[in-house]
Design a protein around this nucleic acid. Structure first.
Lengths: 192, 192
DNA sequence: GTGAGAACTTAACCATGGTTAATTTCTCAG
DNA sequence: CTGAGAAATTAACCATGGTTAAGTTCTCAC
């Protein structure tokens, strides 16, 4: 049950197996069905999750009420809403299961206990925040300076496994275009 | 010379004047002429600055070599490139003075000295990072879900002082459109 | 296997924004 | 004050992407 999360953590910052086991005893496990809301906009995120299997999309609601996909979390990745965790801010986004999900969940009130097990856990936590910042800045840069075509190709290249499990309408939304427009783009790329 | 930065810090987290004075002794002061590069893309940012007066634009370079404005720093605000400060990563952006600038500069190697003066300085530093993350995420959201018109109005409302000091072509670039297109938008808003 | 609904593609039409160039307005050094 | 260069606006043209609707393919529960 803990094999995947242990690998993820050890790949980034090695820990004695004993510490990991103790820390993971504070977590519980939760299942979501395809289509379930994992977190709704307006709700507060009080946990850090690790996705053993499944796929999650986060969506923003625009002024017309339309849901815009703006990010994906796949199996073997951590899942949380950092802003909420740090500042108790309510989520701006919906998080919806696109596949059945199994998630290891650590409630935020357990964090101090884990940090006291081994202070390196707090360093790991900070590292994950810094990664979040880097990713958010890259996402903004990406939107500003890249054409839709470049962003489409970049997405396929960077997340081929996610791409193959995702209905194209989510890709279109993520790129900020409509499905017919994505079809045109794909046709153009086939020919070229 | 330190009045403004002291006010900025005390507004967010009050410090004994003595600690602030000692900390600020580690800083030096630097002047930039309109048009000067404060930091070039590829260079590493090794300081935290506080802008006593002036205006700075940050720009990204797209695939055609065009410079895209993506942010502004005005007087009485802190200035740095967070990614570089934390991870020693080179800047992705140019930072250019749009007006003559006076900047208080604290070299990054002085940070541990200041943190040891009063540990609350480290808390303040972390708070500034968390703010950076919040702003980056909001910027991405803003681009994804708001129309150009909304973003234009939002910019005027949020940064009226910056708007009034800024040639419109920078606003156009920041919004991701060309100057003629911004002219059309402004004309439409006049009539409506 | 079959049928219903979702996903994807295609086509036709239209509105919006890019591009270019001309014109006007602004700014500031001399 | 004057003239040169930058900034902003305007107009005309064109390419691109949104919209709608129709048609095709896919998926999956029964």
């Amino acid at each position: 049950m803990y094999r995947q999360v242990k690998k993820y953590i050890n790949d980034r910052m090695p820990f004695p197996d004993d510490d990991l086991e103790k820390a993971l005893l504070f977590s519980d496990i939760q299942y979501f069905k395809k289509g379930d809301y994992i977190l709704r906009a307006g709700e507060q995120c009080r946990f850090i999750g690790f996705l053993n299997y499944g796929l999650i999309v986060s969506t923003l609601i625009d002024e017309t009420g339309k849901e815009i996909p703006c990010g994906f979390t796949k199996n073997d990745c951590f899942f949380t809403y950092t802003e909420g965790l740090i500042n108790n801010a309510p989520s701006h986004k919906h998080f919806i299961a696109l596949e059945d999900c199994e998630m290891l969940m650590l409630q935020k009130d357990k964090l101090p206990l884990i940090f006291s097990l081994n202070p390196k856990f707090e360093t790991l936590f900070t590292k994950m925040l810094a990664d979040d910042l880097r990713i958010a800045l890259l996402a903004e840069q990406n939107i500003r300076i890249c054409s839709v075509e470049e962003r489409y190709l970049h997405f396929i290249e960077t997340f081929p496994d996610v791409f193959n499990r995702l209905p194209l309408k989510y890709i279109a939304g993520y790129l900020g275009i409509e499905p017919p427009s994505l079809s045109r783009l794909r046709k153009r790329l086939m020919k070229g």
